[in-house]
Simulated assay, not measured.
Amino acid sequence: MSWLNTLHRLNSEGIAAILITVIENRGSTPRDAGTKMIVTADDSYDTIGGGHLEHKAIKQARQLLSEHCSSAQLESYALGASLGQCCGGAIQLLFEPINPPILHVALFGAGHVAKALIPLLGNLPCKVTWIDNRAEQFPAELPPNTTLCLCDEPADEVPDLPVFSYCLVMTHNHQLDQALVEAILKRDDYRYIGMIGSNTKRRKFEHRLRHRGFDENSIAQLHCPVGLAEVCGKLPGEIAVSIAAEFITHYQAAATSSKTKANHLTQHTA
């Protein structure tokens, strides 16, 4: 069952893959029905028996990946006639695309709450870029879906963020928080922006943002204090759970909305 662990890891890292399963085998074949392997653009895991069959299956899987295929496909192979393998049997393979949600989280700041939040994000279907200007604050070990970005000016990283990023502003400096919030709001293509702080901090930021020309709609997009109010507590771990809960609630709501719109469109075009 190692393929399950592999799929979980690939999903956490946001890596698309094809799950290949032997659906049916007749006669002499290298592996039996139920055997699985996983193929990504760069690697393959486990085996369906090796040889020309596996070579051709990997090639087919990577073709599906390059085409961003989203539907499963069945392929049948006669091992002796078409593949020149001595087994001589026949086999049917199912190719299932595994396309993890591409959620990108930009976490600015490496303080106590951020350090407690990173392991929680590490278990979610997202890619995390963790940004700070203090190398000594980053821990030695990170979840596989997390990439460090050490830079002198964290706000300079905002223009290079992927579109529809989830942005969390949690630095040690209010002026830096201000610069980051302004840079993110100016992009206007983020999916979420949250900032750690109190209601008092929010009011001060609202005043500064208005003074600098941001309209009320833009200011309303800022989640501050970040986190679900229902999850109480002042410890770093408690705050981190609250922030993760709000993040999960937000992206699941967005996913539900997208599915509803897709179903509505399908009903009207059928």
Rank of each mutant, 00 (worst) to 15 (best):
T47G: 02
L93T: 03
Q63K: 13
L79D: 05
C87V: 07
I98W: 07
M37E: 05
I118V: 15
S70Q: 14
L53P: 00
Y45E: 08
D43V: 06
H68M: 10
I98L: 12
G109Y: 01
C86P: 10
E54L: 11
P100M: 02
G50N: 07
I38T: 04
L103V: 13
G88F: 07
G51P: 02
P101N: 01
Q92F: 03
A106E: 08
A81G: 14
S44Q: 12
I98A: 11
D43H: 13
D42M: 13
L65G: 04
G49V: 07
V39R: 04
E54M: 10
V113L: 02
K115H: 06
H55G: 12
M37S: 05
C87A: 08
E67S: 15
P119C: 10
S66I: 06
G109L: 03
L120D: 01
L107K: 03
P100N: 04
K127F: 05
S71K: 12
L94P: 04
I91W: 02
P100Y: 00
S66Y: 06
H112W: 06
S71R: 13
C86Y: 11
H55M: 14
P97I: 11
L117Q: 02
A114Y: 02
P125F: 00
L117W: 01
S71Y: 08
N99F: 04
A106V: 14
L94S: 09
G111L: 05
I91T: 04
A72N: 06
D46R: 15
D42Y: 11
Y45W: 10
L124K: 03
Y77Q: 03
P119N: 10
L94K: 03
K127W: 04
E96C: 03
S70W: 07
A78H: 12
F95N: 00
L53C: 08
C86E: 12
E75T: 15
F95R: 00
S70G: 09
L93M: 05
G88R: 11
L120T: 06
D42N: 14
Q85K: 09
L117I: 13
I38Q: 08
A106H: 11
Y45M: 09
L107P: 03
I38Y: 07
A41V: 13
A57E: 00
A114V: 11
I38M: 09
G122T: 09
K36C: 09
S44V: 13
N123G: 15
Q60I: 04
Q60C: 02
F95P: 00
L107M: 02
L53Y: 03
G111V: 11
L65V: 11
S76G: 12
K56T: 15
F108P: 07
H55Q: 13
L121F: 04
K56C: 05
T40C: 07
V39G: 04
